[in-house]
Design a binder for these strands. Sequence first.
RNA 1: CUAGUAAGUCGGGUGAUUGCGCGCCAUUUUCCUAACGAAAAACGGCGUGAGGAAAGUCCGAACUUCCACCUCCUCUAAUGGUGGAGGGGGUAAAAAAGUAGCGGCUAACAGCCGUCCACCGUGAGGUGAGAGGUGCGAAAAGAAACGCUUCAAGCGAAAGCAAGAAGCAUCCUUCGGGAUGAUCCUGACGGAAACGUCGGGCUGAUACGGCUAAAUCCUUGCUGGAAGCAAGAGCAAACCGAGAGUUCUGAGGUUCAUCUUGGAGCUUUCGUGAAAAGUAGCUCGCUUGAUUCCGCAGAGUAAUUUGCGGGACAGACAGAUAAUCGCCUAAUACAGAAUUCGGCUUAUAGACUUACUAGGAUA
RNA 2: GGUGGGAUGGCAGAGUGGACGAUUGCACCGGUUUUGAAAACCGGAGUACUCGGAAGAGUACCGGGGGUUCGAAUCCCUCUCCCACCG
Length: 114
Amino acid sequence: MLPRISRLKKNLDIERVFKKGKKVREGFLVLAVSQNDLAETRFGFVVSQKVSKRAVQRNQLKRRLRESIRPRVSEIKKGLDIILLATPGLEKKDFWEIKKTVNLLLKKSKCLRE
RNA sequence: CUAGUAAGUCGGGUGAUUGCGCGCCAUUUUCCUAACGAAAAACGGCGUGAGGAAAGUCCGAACUUCCACCUCCUCUAAUGGUGGAGGGGGUAAAAAAGUAGCGGCUAACAGCCGUCCACCGUGAGGUGAGAGGUGCGAAAAGAAACGCUUCAAGCGAAAGCAAGAAGCAUCCUUCGGGAUGAUCCUGACGGAAACGUCGGGCUGAUACGGCUAAAUCCUUGCUGGAAGCAAGAGCAAACCGAGAGUUCUGAGGUUCAUCUUGGAGCUUUCGUGAAAAGUAGCUCGCUUGAUUCCGCAGAGUAAUUUGCGGGACAGACAGAUAAUCGCCUAAUACAGAAUUCGGCUUAUAGACUUACUAGGAUA
RNA sequence: GGUGGGAUGGCAGAGUGGACGAUUGCACCGGUUUUGAAAACCGGAGUACUCGGAAGAGUACCGGGGGUUCGAAUCCCUCUCCCACCG
């Protein structure tokens, strides 16, 4: 789990990212980014019922997504709002494949620091 | 030993590295204050952190708000009739909607326990939404549907198909009927009761079978109703000037007056971050309660309940309880709290305990 | 998290205990009309299995599975899927 300060919380913020943000797709994952006016970078994770009907599986996916981002927080630029959206099919991947995809997405969207 | 029946327990443990929610403690920083002090954040320490079904939302309750009615209090208006505002307590009656063998348990239930009856099983046991009625007699449906037996128009070479009609059942018969049984009325005994056992009445009444209402009818007993924690309560930005008087007008109050409320015009007063409003947001509700487990003692066949002693119990808000890699092992299942609790139902790898039944073997 | 609604021929969509395997429209098949077609009008037709040479008859099926009932698309329980609403 990420510290509270770097979580994307308000429904308003999330809608803003989806509407105005840049979106990048890779495999069964979508990454959306937009600027915020804060010093911190905030993250949100979305796994809908379309991905899996079972709550246990959805929770596990979210944990794995969080865990694949967490060690790399310090390498990411400040002042961004980032959302990771899972699409059906992701539930069949294991942790290492997810981590690889997330890394690729971060590079593609140019969120990493130089 | 084999096959089975019932009740119940568990449903992972442990090590390393990296992390999160909540509570408490300590330190530091920020902000407010004259000060005491309070709040927030960061880092550190300690404690704690999903289930037997957390699930389905099928029942029931607690709690909150609203509605209905009854009753009491306060304020106010006023008579031709009586009204309006606020608050406290309660659910008697009525309506609507439910419920059902009988007796009990429970806060309550369609749940649980005991028991009766029917059916299933060699047996241990299992299953059951199982009140009484609806020709007349106090109330309340229709028999056109379904099934059985016998007869059978018609079609067809036949086998067969078949509209329609009739019929308490079984056995015996000299074909007239008789016997037994079910139903009905009634008595005794056993039982707390549902009911059971043994008689009596008389073919006299009911009737081909089923005996049907958890959508609908009647009777009896029981229960105020509805919505749901996104219930509900408090604090409170931004935006926006606010109040009073008066005139006209729409709606409600059965009508007029009065009253409540919406809109428009005119006049006037105060005012430059104050009042009103209650939105964004935040806080409370929110977790220790009809709780649950263990032991002892009492009541009861039991469900359950009373007393004493001890232990346990997460509270998030884009939502914590984890991620990765080892080791043990049979551990590979179903599955993630969201106001709380009692049930039911459905999903579930595997491991274990106790009691009992049937069959077989040995002593 | 809570509340409510739905699933019926190929498609849409009625049917709230009995004459309903199912009304109606579109689509389908045949006929009339036309040189031909369209439109219009008339008629037909669900699927599977069983018996039968045929006529005809029987059984099952209204999302799946049970139950109540003499009788269920309809009532009750349960499972699956779909849709809407509540800050």
